[in-house]
Structure formats: C-alpha cells, structure tokens
Write a protein that binds this DNA or RNA. Structure first.
Lengths: 276, 276
DNA sequence: CCCACCGATCACAAGATCTTCACAGCTATT
DNA sequence: AATAGCTGTGAAGATCTTGTGATCGGTGGG
C-alpha cells in the first residue's frame, strides 16, 4: 500500500475542531522573539518570524491567520505598509506590538486596519490571548468558507456542502457519515484508531465494545462503492483502525477481461441503495 | 411596506455606507461617560449607557454591535457575567475598559470572549478606534452581501427594497423572511447550519430546540412557491441546515407561460429530502 | 376599540438517521 | 490446525429531525 496521500497539505488539521493556526511575527527583538517562540511552539501554532518586513505579496502567500508586527522596524514606511497589508488581506488578524506610542499613533494604526495594538514591553501570554481574540471572529466566519474541496480518486469532499461527490453527483452521505469520511480523509493517509475516530466524530469517549465506527465505515463503503465502484477508499488495519486512501481496485484499472471478470461484474451490480 | 430602521444596525442600512452603529456602555464613571457620550453623538452612533449591568437577556434584546464594559462595577460576578454575555452573543463586539489590571486578568477576560481590553485612564479616541476595529470584521462580512440586486431563477432579491420580486411583482416577504432569504441567497450555494442562520438573522445564539428557522423556511417556501411555482429555492440538508439554490422543479421544464392544462400539475412537487 | 399582520412556540406526524445486537467471516496466534 | 479476538453484515427498534398547522400575544392602522 502506498503512503502518498492524495490530500491537500495546506488544509491539514488534526480534526474537525482543531486549530492549526498559522501566524507570523515581524520583529527583531531577539529576547522577545525567543520567549514568544517557545510559547508558540508549546501551543502548537505554526509560526514564522521575520526580522524584516516581507513584501505584502509574500505575506499574502503565507496564508496566515494572524500577523504580529513591530512598527518600529518598518521605518518611515510603517504606516503605508500596514495599510497595504490590511487592504490586501481583509481577513488577516493584525496585531501591532511595538514600543512606546502616542494615542494618536495607536488610533491611526487601528484605523488603518490593525485589529489590536499592544505596547512593549508586554507579557507574551497577553499577546497570545490578544492574537486568539483577534482570530476568534475571523475563524467564526471564514472557517467554512475557506476550506476548499478535498479530492481523492474520483471523490470530492466538500465542506461547504457537507457532502461528498463523484463526478458531480452527490454520494448522499448523512451528516455522521460525512463527518467520518472528512475526518479520515483529512488524516493525510494516517491510520486512525477507533477511539480517536469516535472521540472526534461523536464528540465524547467511546465505550468499550461500541461498534458504531465499524457500522458507519460499512455504510460509507457501501455508498462509496455504489458511487465509485473502481476505487476503494477506506482500508482496515486489523487491530488498529481505519485509514483513508484512494486506491484503484485491483483489476479495475483495465477493462474487466482478466480472470476475475465475473467477480467484478457481480460486485458492480451490487449497488442497491438502502433507501427506496 | 414598512421599514423599522430600529433593529439590526449592521444590515438594515438604507445605503451600505453610513451605518448607524449601536453600542452600549456599562460604566459609572460620570466624567468618562460624559466625554464619551459627546464623542459618540458626534459620530452618530446610537448608544446607551448603563450605570449598572443589565441582565444578559436584556442586553441581547438591544441588538448591539458592540458593548463597552467596566468590569469593576460588576463586582464579584464580573467574570461570569462576561462569559455569559459572550456566549449568548458570539457576534457581539466586547471591549473591556477598566482600571488597573494584571496580565492574568486581561488574559482571562480575553479568553472568556472579550475582543479587546483597554486600561483606564484612556483616551476616548482610542476607545472609539478600538471599538471600530472590533466591529470592523463583522461589517466586512455583512457588507459583502449588501451589493446590488441578486438574481436566482425567477427571483430577484433587492436589498434596497428589502423585498424579493418575481417578474417584477413583490413576493410580499416580511422583514424576517427577507433577512432569512437574503442570508441564504448570499451564502453562495453553501449549506448553512441552523445555529449559523439563527445567529446571523436573529442576532443572538439559538437555544436548543428552537424551531424558528424551520418555521420561517416553511413560510418562505410557501410564498416562493406561490410566486414562482416552477422553481425550488431552499433545500434541506438533513441534520445540517439549509442551502439556497434556484433549481427547476422536476417536470416543470422551461415554458414560463401557459402550462398546457391538466397533467402538468400532478406530481411535480415530489420533494427530495436530500440533494446537493 | 377592533382588526389584520407578524413573530414566537407548541404539538403532532412522517421520515430519516442512529444505535444496538446477533451472527458470520476473517486474522493473528498458540 | 484450532482458538480467541476482531471485523463485516443485515436488520429491527429507538431516537432524532423536519414539515406542518394552529395558537397566542404584541403592534400598529383604521
């Protein structure tokens, strides 16, 4: 079995509700950066520090959730940079974290599009809390909209429709079925254990002996096979759990003239949907 | 018909540009309030000051864009109050403006849902700028959908008239009905969950078991079908919510004119419960 | 004051979905 | 090869969701 996930690396997430936040810090105060860095690592946020301002285009390309800027290192074009940045990414959270400033400067920064302004020296924990607050709203809104469709084999999994499609046709997944396949498909080809799956899809701990995950995997397989007979998507790892990967079914590659002709045809006709 | 400009300030502007923001200030520092009051008047923001905290329900009923709170006057229940308020109105901008505080307190407030924390004494202008920054994002989202008339199928949805039309005739939607269809239609074909819909149309968090969204969807469907019988616009996604898309009803092909008599109207409206 | 309209809730019915169970088939291990 | 432990399968009953019609205050106009 190959391990190459057909999924999109940039939308990786631990689970449906998990937050893979991505932020950048434009600053050159090494002491501050060091502390912040450690703290961000512990939180598991992807982050990047830049000692000098990157062109707005590059920042846009980073797909950030938020950015922290010390205006001091921007020099005289600080305001202009701030303005262009905010204009270019209306959904980006911008926190200015800089040295002493006047009320007028703070007001100016905020009016130009900054979401918060924090004066150094400041406690990293407060900066983090403010970043979170800034991101909070953006997430509420942008979350669903931004998650693009995920493709694997003939399957297209669309968050915005709560549904999977094959060749433009809906696979008619129920909500739980969708949540399950979305979780699996986003796992980047990793094997997920039943307890994990249950915890993330059902939202609470699985009791020993619960077969719900198995049952839903079966339903999923059934619907997926009906919609996309030549591919298999969910693979069992005995004693462990399940793994998602789009794989061409054996013998389905070419026309069924090979030995398993009857077997294949038999399977292909088996697509009786369970509803009328 | 009628337009009460009284309710949601974010969406019910006549022109998209000058929205009357509505905010409340919970504080009892008369000097501060006086200055702020004057400043807010000049800006043309609707505002109201409360010397003591109003029950969360009442605050919800005010349909605010943002609220400024001095935690000091809330006494020991300050944190709890803040938390309940933020939970009840996820879309509300909350700015804490209070006296001296520790980093831990600020972090706690922000984590509970506050959007910003400002320490008194502060310049009113900075407070205003921060309120604006907090509200800004929410505005951007709503503005996105306040563009020109939106067309789908036979339907024309006009923000400027607060009404939908079919073939030039008004569909006679009530205010809520219009807000609902406007929200759905601007969702760009996405499925919206009930909680989302409720939050954005009613302005505060939906309590479990509330059927308002369903009831209004039914009313909408009824009126839309009366006005545009050959199209279906609102589609149910079981266990999830609703999705807007103009789709020709089965059996009701083109021919916007006289249907050829009897056998047209037999079973054209067999509603598929799930589709996409 | 009466009336038409609107929005909030409720209760009920019809479906759709989820959970659970028993059993069959399969896998790794002794 | 035999066994204990997992996993696949099908179905029935329980539970949850949604569609629908009706009721009840509140409001504003006549």
């Amino acid at each position: 079995m190959n391990e190459l996930p057909a999924t999109r690396p940039e939308t990786d997430s631990q689970g449906a509700a998990s937050l893979a936040l991505r932020i950048a810090v434009i600053d050159n105060d090494s002491g501050f950066l060091q502390v912040l860095d450690k703290r961000l690592n512990r939180l598991g946020w992807e982050h990047r520090t830049l000692a000098s301002p990157a062109p707005v285009d590059e920042v846009v390309a980073m797909r950030l959730s938020a950015i922290v800027i010390d205006l001091a290192i921007l020099g005289p074009q600080a305001w202009e940079y701030l303005e262009r940045l905010c204009a270019a990414m209306p959904g980006l959270g911008v926190v200015v974290c800089t040295g002493r400033s006047s009320v007028a400067q703070r007001v100016r920064g905020l009016r130009l599009g900054a979401d918060d302004w924090l004066t150094k020296p400041c406690h990293p924990e407060e900066l983090i809390a403010r970043i979170e607050a800034v991101i909070r709203r953006r997430r509420e809104i942008d979350d669903r909209r931004s998650a693009g469709p995920l493709e694997a084999g003939e399957l297209v999994i669309r968050n915005d429709h709560f549904q999977a499609f094959v060749d433009g046709r809906s696979v008619e997944l129920t909500r739980r079925e969708f949540e399950l396949i979305e979780l699996l498909a986003n796992a980047d080809g990793r094997v997920l254990e039943r307890e994990d799956i249950y915890q993330r899809v059902w939202g609470y701990a699985m009791v020993r002996g619960d077969r719900s995950v198995d049952v839903f995997v079966r339903k999923l397989r059934h619907k997926l096979e009906a919609a996309s007979p030549n591919w298999s998507y969910i693979h069992t790892h005995f004693g462990v759990g399940y793994r998602f990967a789009a794989e061409l079914r054996e013998g389905a590659d070419i026309v069924p003239d090979a030995p398993p002709a009857d077997f294949v045809a038999d399977k292909a006709d088996e697509k009786a949907p369970l509803e009328a």
